[in-house]
């Protein structure tokens, strides 16, 4: 029995992590946790990109991983700034309380 993980294992792991991220975004109420779930989604995509890159023997996927990491960092900066500015005026952050407008 061959126990060496193949590319499909990594792809399945990526899919599972992505799904966990989606579930986290949809069920959690704390903005920071939602935020972390989005990061989990992005990182599962990175895993997928790296796997495909290895499988296809092309460097594009790995370059994409670096781009995604950079963008994710920029997103953290903006997201935390928005959370801090809300916290300064409201002193609490629960997405259910952000209901002045109801879409």
């Amino acid at each position: 029995m061959n126990l060496t993980p193949g590319p499909e294992h990594f792809l399945v792991l990526g899919a599972i992590l992505f799904t966990l991220g989606v579930i986290g975004v949809l069920t959690r109420r704390d903005p920071l946790i939602i935020f972390m779930s989005i990061e989990l989604m992005l990182n599962s995509v990175n895993l997928t990109f790296a796997t495909f890159s290895q499988q296809l023997g092309s460097a594009d996927g790995q370059v994409f991983v670096f781009i995604v990491m950079t963008v994710a960092a920029a997103e953290v900066v903006v997201g935390l700034a928005l959370i801090v500015s809300i916290f300064q005026t409201r002193q609490q952050i629960d997405v259910d309380e952000l209901d002045q407008m109801s879409g």
Binding site: L11, F18, G21, V25, P31, I34, F35, I38, M41, L42, S44, V45, T48, F49, T51, F52, Q55, L56, D60, G61, F64, V68, E75, V78, G79, L82, I83, I86, V95, L98, M101
Partner: peptide, 25 residues
Amino acid sequence: AGFKYFLLSSFASAFLLYGFALLYG
């Protein structure tokens, strides 16, 4: 508005990105 846009839009970006990854694969 800023915060809602941020959360939902980055959620959507992740979907788009995963789609890109599979298309690349």
